[in-house]
Design a protein around this nucleic acid. Sequence first.
DNA 1: GTATATGCAAACCGTTTGCATGGCT
DNA 2: AGCCATGCAAACGGTTTGCATATAC
Lengths: 138, 138
Amino acid sequence: MSLTEHHRGTTWLERGGLRPTRQRLALAGLLVGDGLNRHVTAESLFAAAAQAGEKVSLATVYNTLRAFCEAGLLNEVVVDGARSYFDTRLDDHPHFYWEDSNALTDAPVEDLVISNLPAAPEGMAVSRVDVVIRLKKA
Amino acid sequence: MSLTEHHRGTTWLERGGLRPTRQRLALAGLLVGDGLNRHVTAESLFAAAAQAGEKVSLATVYNTLRAFCEAGLLNEVVVDGARSYFDTRLDDHPHFYWEDSNALTDAPVEDLVISNLPAAPEGMAVSRVDVVIRLKKA
DNA sequence: GTATATGCAAACCGTTTGCATGGCT
DNA sequence: AGCCATGCAAACGGTTTGCATATAC
């Protein structure tokens, strides 16, 4: 993890009010170190950490992802019943879900317009609108 | 299960090319017997069957829901990592997901317009577009 | 008669948790 | 010092599966 990456991870953790432990810094660096948006599962992040030579237990990856979510640093995206995905991008935006590889990516949002969204029923408010464009091989 | 319900369930199974066993007829009757759209989980359908006095094992409910899906009689909708939802309505339409009760319902589709849907990436085709409007208590 | 469906219990897999240890402030 | 994070292994919950039995064709 470079100095820039480290710094980015540190300030990111601070924003969430989370203690900068070695494991959290490592995971934060992998998530936001290069400033790009990222979509991970617990397993994929665990694998990336191992690859990078970081020693973090799988349980800690799970706990940390949950902590990042609760701190508002990540969003959970539900696209596959089998596993949870986490997105470093926080605003409401559409996703591509690649059914053949189980990958999740951002869909170009420029053009997408959702008009006349149904009104929330009495006593309810819209918490979020998830748009998932499922892709299969052509 | 009334005669009408039974008949609806039978023709429904035939459409999927599935053998009309006692259990499948019972579940089909609960799903499409009244001609209304329905959103169920394995557990909720199992409970409904028990309530109706139908003897079906939980494993069979799971296997049958899967079979119905593969036969194109149901659609699976992913809104909650914890459990699978099945929808008797087959066309692409938006859903309300009630976060406080974990219920899934159809959202009024009349007005919703999605314009400028991002093009599918090279070599891929859009398999489905899932729109889930998550509702929380106001 | 043959292929397929059902039921039960055990396996499964992603995720969570209890508890002892170690680290941050 | 005190609180919180980590790691391991065991528990968990929804779902699937192996296998013996029963049912549709």
